[in-house]
Every structure is written in structure tokens, then in C-alpha cells.
Simulated assay, not measured.
Amino acid sequence: MKKLSVIKIGGNIIEDENALSQFLKLFADLEGSKILVHGGGKRATHIAAKLGVSSKMVNGRRITDTDSLDVITMVYGGLVNKNIVARLQALQVDAIGLSGADANSISSNKRPVAEVDFGFVGDVRKVNHDAVDILIRSGFTPVFCAITHDGKGQLLNTNADTIASQIAVGMSEIYETSIYYCFELDGVLRDINNPNSVIKHIDKMLYAQLLDQGIITDGMLPKLENCFDALDKGVKHINMGNTAMLSKENNNFTRITL
């Protein structure tokens, strides 16, 4: 079975010109078939403020009303996505920028209203692995922004970490898939105040212990939940750390296994 790498980059990398340039060079040099997934929440908040659109957050998650969805579509699907695609082309990567609506590649359900109405937010329902595979076999490198659709004409803002994991799960029917979650830290830290306290290997047993000890909290919780869900559903390898983990010489990052 052929191998496929799914790489997700966080907003701090997108906003840091040097970090983004270094990442794109590492991504371009990465051998084999690959898919890039990005968000752009910080850029969207900045552009929204310029346009007079208020950004509402609940527990770190964006409320996506009609105006916010317009900004997200412009920023994620336009400004951020096309800049990344153009820069990858300059690095001899034949990238193609996509939302989940393109080629019906990722369909979602609008999140039901519970305690909070998150608006036009999608929970991934299906990845069209055949359509994505056609692009890969044609020599293209898909670059997905964090937008999906409901199949009825509605775009939906969708968590980029979840998109990365669900793409990897969907493509695991065809490829041996690996996920690389790239962010500003070297990996999952045992002590948030000590950047050198990287936990190099986390399995389900250690994960439960880290939860009990209060070491895994806040934004790292949904990331690791996505990781174990993806591993349960066929993804082979998951790595978390800064962009240097894409280099063969670097081994200072966190590996997630069952």
C-alpha cells in the first residue's frame, strides 16, 4: 500500500513569515504523496476587525454567523490558501487549493444547536477519497482550507485539526496514512512552562494518566482526541511538533500511538 502524509499547520505558523517559509520548504522536500491542511483563524479575526465584523468566541471556538462565514471564506479559501499554493508552485510543488466543496471532497453536517449555537459550523460526515485520489494520482498536491459543505449549497466553517484527521481516515482506505500536526511547540509538553519537556511517545494508557494529572488541558485536548479517533479508524502514524519534525534529521517531537 502506498504511503500518504497529511500535514496540518496552525495559525501561528501562518502568521510568522519566517516560520511559514521554513515550513513550506520542508513540505516541498517531503517525499511521496502528501496533503496540506490549514486554517487561518488569526488572520480571519484580523481581517474581520478591519471590515467591522465582530468575532465571537465561546471556549476558544468561533461562532460563525453569516458575516463571519463571509470573512472566513475570503480569508481561508482565498487569501491564505492561494498565497500558500502560489508559494508552493515557486518551490516546484504542483499544489491545488481546495475547500471541501471542491470535487465534493469533504461533506459535513451543520452542528446541531445544544447549549451554544455555533452557527455555520460543520462536523465532517464523509471524505470523498476517490476524488482526492484522482488529484493525487494526476500529480497534484491538495491544499485544503478549513471549509467544508453540506451538499445543499451551504459552506461550513470546520475545525482544521478535525479536517486533517478525517482526511487521513478517509484516505486510509487507499493509502497507509500518517498525520503531522505542526505548531509552534516541539511537541506535547509535560510542563507547559518548560519548552524542553517534550513527551516523545503517548499511547492510550499514558494519555489517561496525563489527563488525570491535569497535564493535557485546553487546546491540546481536542487535538489528542482527534489523534486517537483517527488511529482507531485506520491511520497508521500521528506526530505532533514544530515544523522541524518533517526533517529526517529531527526526532524531537511527540509520536501518538494506540
Rank of each mutant, 00 (worst) to 15 (best):
Q22D: 14
E17F: 01
D29K: 14
S33E: 13
K8D: 06
M57P: 01
G10P: 08
R61L: 12
G60Y: 11
A49Q: 15
D65I: 00
I13Q: 09
H46Q: 15
I35V: 15
G52H: 04
L24V: 09
I35R: 05
H46R: 12
K50C: 02
E31F: 03
H46I: 01
I14W: 05
S33H: 07
F27C: 11
E31P: 03
L26C: 14
F27G: 12
L36H: 05
G41L: 06
R61V: 07
E31R: 02
V37A: 04
N12W: 00
G52V: 00
A28L: 11
L26G: 13
I13D: 08
S33R: 08
K50G: 05
I47E: 06
S54A: 12
L30E: 15
G52S: 08
V58S: 05
I14R: 02
E17R: 12
F27R: 09
T45I: 00
I9V: 14
A28W: 09
V53R: 04
I47A: 02
G10S: 14
I13A: 09
A48W: 04
I35E: 01
N18L: 13
V58C: 09
T64P: 15
I63N: 12
E15P: 01
L51F: 10
I13N: 11
L36F: 07
V37K: 02
A19V: 03
D16N: 15
A19S: 15
D16I: 10
E17H: 03
I9R: 00
